[in-house]
Amino acid sequence: MNLAFYKYQGTGNDFILVDNREGDYSGLTEEQIRSLCDRRFGIGADGFMLLNEKEDYDFEMVYYNADGREGSMCGNGGRCIVQFASDRGIKKPAYHFIATDGPHEATIEDGEVSLKMKDVESIQAYRTDSVLNTGSPHYVQLDPDVMHLDVFKEGQKIRYSKEFAEQGINVNFVQVKEPDTLIVRTYERGVENETYSCGTGVTAAALVYYHNDNGFNSVNIETLGGKLNVRYRREPDGSFNNIWLKGPAVKVFEGSISATDHD
C-alpha cells in the first residue's frame, strides 16, 4: 500500500496525518502504524491520525498513539487535524468534528487553532497530587524547578506504578512561574517518553492551577516546544466548562511511503 502522508506539529508535538475520507487507509495494522511512527525506521511522530468522513460533522478524528494502538483524545493532535482539514480544502468559519471523547468545536485565526475541550466535572486529589480526565487521563504534580527534572525517570515511576500501570496515565510536572503562567513537562503513555508538548496535559495543568476561584481563567503555558493558552470557566462546585486550548499547528512536510514495508 502506498500511503500519502502529511506531517504536522503543534508546539513540537508531532503527528502523521492521512486523508482517509475515501477509506483507503482504514486497514492499517497496529504494527504498521507503530513502524510509521518510529523515529529511526519510519517517518517519526508522537501519534498518527486518520481524517475520516462522518455524517453530521465536518470530519472524524481517529487517533493512534506512537505504539500503534488507538488512543484517547489528543489536544495538540486535535488542533493539528483542524489545520490539516483546512489545508485539504475543508474550509469553515468554525469546525465541528467528532473524536473518541465526543464532539469538538474549533476555529482558526491569525495562524493559531483554538480547540474546545470536553467539560471536566472534578479534580481528584491523589496524595499530594491531582488526577483528572481532559479527554485523556492525567496525573499532575507540582515541581519547583521543572526544567532540571528527569521527566523520563520520574514520569515512568508514576505511569508504571501499581495504581496506574494497567490503564496507563499521562504524567505532568508543573512549575508555577506566575499566577497565570505555568511551565509544563509531560511523560506520555503510548509514546512512553517525554514529548515536547501535550495538549490534554497542559489543559489538565491549567485546570489544577487556576488563579480565579470562580469564573473566567486564562492560563499561559510554556512547554519544551513552545507556548499554549488555556482559557475556561471554573464553577463554584469545582467543575470546569467552556475549556479552549489555543496554539500553533504547523505543516512540516508531506510525502509518500510504502506501508507494506512496515508490516
Rank of each mutant, 00 (worst) to 15 (best):
C74N: 07
P93D: 15
G102P: 11
G75W: 03
E105W: 13
R69E: 14
T100Q: 10
S72H: 10
R79Y: 00
Y63C: 02
T100K: 10
R69N: 14
D110N: 14
D67G: 12
T100E: 12
T100G: 13
D87T: 01
K91N: 14
A106T: 07
K91G: 02
T100R: 11
H104S: 04
A85L: 00
T100N: 11
Y64V: 07
E70R: 15
C80M: 04
I81K: 01
A99T: 01
Y95W: 10
F84L: 06
H104K: 08
P103H: 06
P103E: 07
D67L: 03
D110A: 12
Y64R: 07
E109H: 12
A94R: 15
E70Y: 02
R88Y: 03
N65L: 05
D110K: 13
G89D: 11
E70N: 02
C80A: 09
C80P: 03
I98K: 13
H104R: 12
Q83N: 12
A106W: 04
F84I: 03
A66F: 13
Y63D: 01
F84T: 11
T100L: 08
A94K: 15
G68F: 05
T107F: 10
C80L: 00
G75C: 01
G78D: 08
Y63P: 00
D110Q: 13
Y95F: 15
Q83A: 11
T107L: 10
S86T: 08
I108S: 10
R79E: 05
D87R: 08
R88F: 09
E70F: 00
I98T: 13
R69V: 15
P93H: 08
G102T: 10
D67Q: 11
E109N: 12
E109I: 07
H104N: 12
G102S: 09
D110G: 08
D87V: 04
G78V: 04
V82E: 00
A85H: 05
G89I: 11
R88C: 14
A85P: 09
P93M: 06
V82N: 01
D67Y: 08
D101G: 04
T100W: 05
M73G: 01
G78M: 03
R79M: 09
V82L: 05
P93Y: 07
I108Y: 14
G77L: 00
G77M: 03
G75M: 07
H104W: 03
Y64D: 00
P103L: 09
A94L: 09
K91W: 04
E105Y: 15
H104A: 04
G68C: 07
R69P: 04
G111C: 11
C74D: 03
G68S: 10
A99P: 08
T107Q: 07
C74L: 05
Q83M: 12
R79L: 01
C74I: 02
E105Q: 13
F84C: 06
P93G: 05
D110V: 06
D87E: 15
G68L: 04
P103F: 08
G77Q: 02
F97M: 04
I81H: 06
A94T: 13
D87F: 07
G89C: 09
A94F: 09
G78H: 01
S86Q: 15
T100P: 03
N76D: 07
E112V: 15
H96G: 06
F84G: 04
S72R: 11
E105D: 12
I90G: 02
E109D: 14
E70H: 00
A106K: 06
T100H: 10
G71Y: 02
